[in-house]
Amino acid sequence: MKRADPRVKLLWVLLCTTGALVFFRPMWMLGLTLFSLGGTLLFGVTLQALGRRLRGFLPLALVILALHILFVRAGNPLVIIRGYPVLYSGGVMRGATTLLRFFVILCSAAVMARENTRRVLTALTKLGISYLFSFMLMIALRFIPSFSTSFSDALIALQLRGVELKKIPFGQKIRLYKDLVLPVVADAVVKSKELAIVMEARGFGALPTRTSYLDVRMTFADWVLTCILFSLGLLSFGFYYLFG
């Protein structure tokens, strides 16, 4: 399944992310999480790679969990301190469901990040999505890391000039970041302009159509997988609305 057609992976991502948005019951979310994890591993993402991706989101996930536990007052009280209930079963369940939702979305991102963007681009074009739109999407996704690199470069440059970020009070730090945003955005604009010039110099948009060197073809296994995913999607969403 590692070499599955990008369209199959896109369908799987669509099912997982739609489920993550639709399912609110914890058991359904747990089922979706196991389905996502299984798919992620079958599509060739290693547990280590997934772990690395999760580690970055761990602080945010913990904050979300804490907020749910503290502020959702539904279900039975689980912990009562001096007659005041501080922890409810509903809060814990809601927090856990939200964490699983995050996990499912990260699994989808991990699978798509492992796929060659050119294959995705060709697959999207074959699905009837305009090449221009798909290409713009691809370029935008490639720009995000370069944007964060520019920002961290600017921070390093500041520190090399003697500014100790750790010692600056929070308010001043926020002002500093605000001042850095403008040059970083300006740098991104310059880069995008250079990119547009290079693309045009290589004939981008010169003709109303274009050919594609890379071709993606659905194999028999891809069709089987697509049918399985479609059936699974229809069944699970149908069941959820009828009996969930």
Partner: peptide, 8 residues
């Protein structure tokens, strides 16, 4: 491939 693709 990008340039030749653009020229069909």
């Amino acid at each position: 491939a990008f340039g030749p693709e653009n020229l069909c």
